[in-house]
Design a protein around this nucleic acid. Structure first.
Lengths: 315, 315
DNA sequence: TATGTTAGTGAGCAAATACCCATTTTTGGA
DNA sequence: TCCAAAAATGGGTATTTGCTCACTAACATA
């Protein structure tokens, strides 16, 4: 362990000399007394361990403009648009960093806040970008259960990692994501501890969620939370996206019945009382994002240029 | 102007694609429709314009340890030690970034604070690292005059740039740094506006200052604020450093007479009521730093590894 | 003690990058 | 409109970097 520590230490030092002091890897090698190859490894270790954080500090005009128009058009409280990488098909590049920066900003408040957190790949990628912080004054509450269909801890549940990184009190939900029946959901939600966690989530000052698409490779299906038949039923009922399991149609209305009567997640905090920020991008998620902003399921959005343009032009 | 803007825009975009999205310069060139060389220029422009901000997010053990010992040994409220670049002779590399980060952290408070700011190359370099912010709730007050001996605005006066960058209310001091006589100083300080600015500076919640050495190339002499004879007189009186013009000896006591009876700067806020953080490093400044921390002229220090070691070992 | 496993190291090489220099384009002024 | 100065561009090249591969040391296990 101590070895690993000191290695990370060296990595941080190498990363500092490389990125901040502007040394070449040769110079770093000489200073740290290792071979150039080792210096290179240290630098790349620092990068891969997330020790090196880069942010671009310039308001790119077109992104600012898109954000402004998004806010206006959809009456959003908050909008942030990051540049698109035209060739990347990732649905997290860029918005993960931007979401992390926004979460960090919120957590820097000295007054205690309640932050609600959804789930999914985008949020997970964002959480991984968070720096270590000391925020014992805040409370972070998960909106969704952390139990996967097979009984293991759900992989894309992010609250544990997050609470660990920022040292805040955390309130996970020891629940499945989707209960087996409406009655079971009621039973679970009536448990005192769960009940108080649900109450806490309703008081969230700020909420961060991802948006899942409901196409053929819907994450909620691929991760095994719903069956193929249920996915098909949702699609036939007009569902175009889901947030922490709650499926909604193109008008942003929650689908009646099917899985929605068994979703064990907390209700999405109301955008009247909470700032509800969705982080999502990409053509597959577009219908879901459009629906969510149209009906004010969310009142904040972090997305990329292309998605922002599509939102403004389309529909 | 618009051209320059759009160029910076492109630079930001190129920097984003390079550092955040991980593209090679070839890919960026293709995406932006320019040659590889131009892409390279855009990236390096983004770096040199300070659009790209890198921070290392790992508590390097040896620096943490040095900071801990500095705090304990000199009863400091705050200490931060950054890695040294063994081959760099710059006296700002590293601490400028760290100082900027600390200033930024303080300004992120939603409660209004009063921040007092000194002068000098180190602070100037730090301010240049600050990102744009919106802090209308804070007040930033300069401790020193902003008029150079030749009547122009003093180059190393940083409050204007700073107030501009962070959009806070600023309170400069339309004064020379050193008055021509004690009587003139009194006259100046008795002006109502100046008087109230001085009063504000005494209430500072947090103060950032640099420390100037008083060796043969003392900045206060090189910038023409004092004459060679005055410098010699200060040296003979035992002065080892100065903060916003106030010269002090190795025991941290203000030198009597000479220039000190004419310094028009505000008194350094008391470290009993304000957090007074000095940002300084390098062997030339060592005696000054040692004196300042020993006598609690400052109760916070941002420095580099080498200087920290020297402080702890020496004396 | 032999042996398999893992992590780390250095050499070498292809790719990527920084920089120099001649040329072209743009800008600003007469 | 033309000219001169300044800025931008693209080619070429030396330097720097990322990566693979084979090797070694450390360690756990039989």
């Amino acid at each position: 362990m101590a070895v690993r520590e000191s290695r990370l230490d060296d990595a941080a030092r190498a990363g500092w000399l490389y990125y901040v002091a502007g040394n070449t890897q040769d110079q770093i090698a000489a200073k740290l007394g290792v071979s150039r190859q080792s210096a290179q490894r240290l630098v790349s270790l620092a990068v891969s361990e997330g020790l090196v954080r880069v942010r671009i500090d310039h308001p790119i005009a077109s992104c600012m403009e898109l954000a402004r128009r998004l806010k206006q058009r959809f009456c959003l409280q908050f909008a942030e648009v990051v540049p698109s990488d035209p060739s990347s098909t990732s649905t997290t590049t860029g918005i993960a960093e931007a979401t992390a920066a926004e979460i960090e900003r919120r957590l820097q408040s000295p007054e205690p806040i309640v932050m609600a957190i959804g789930t999914g790949r985008t949020l997970k990628a964002a959480i991984e970008q968070l720096p270590s912080m000391e925020c014992p004054q805040h409370r972070i509450v998960s909106l969704t259960g952390n139990i996967a269909p097979d009984g293991s801890a759900a992989f894309y549940n992010v609250i544990f990692t997050m609470a660990d990184t920022v040292k805040a009190r955390s309130f996970p939900m020891p629940l499945p994501v989707i209960a087996s029946s409406p009655a079971e959901r009621k039973l679970l939600h009536d448990q005192p501890m769960i009940h108080s966690t649900l109450a806490l989530s309703a008081q969230a000052d700020v909420t961060f969620v991802g948006i899942g698409d409901l196409g053929p490779s819907a994450p909620i299906f691929e991760d095994g939370f719903i069956s193929r038949d249920e996915l098909t039923a949702l699609q036939e009922a007009g569902a175009v996206g889901e947030i922490v399991g709650w499926a909604f149609d193109a008008d942003g209305m929650l689908v009646k019945g099917i899985t929605n009567e068994r979703v064990a997640s907390a209700p999405i905090p109301s955008s009247d009382t909470s700032l509800v920020i969705a982080a999502a991008m990409g053509p597959r998620k577009l219908p879901g994002i459009a629906a969510a902003v149209k009906r004010h399921i969310v009142n904040g959005l972090i997305t990329d240029e292309r998605t922002a343009s599509a939102l403004l032009n389309g529909v």
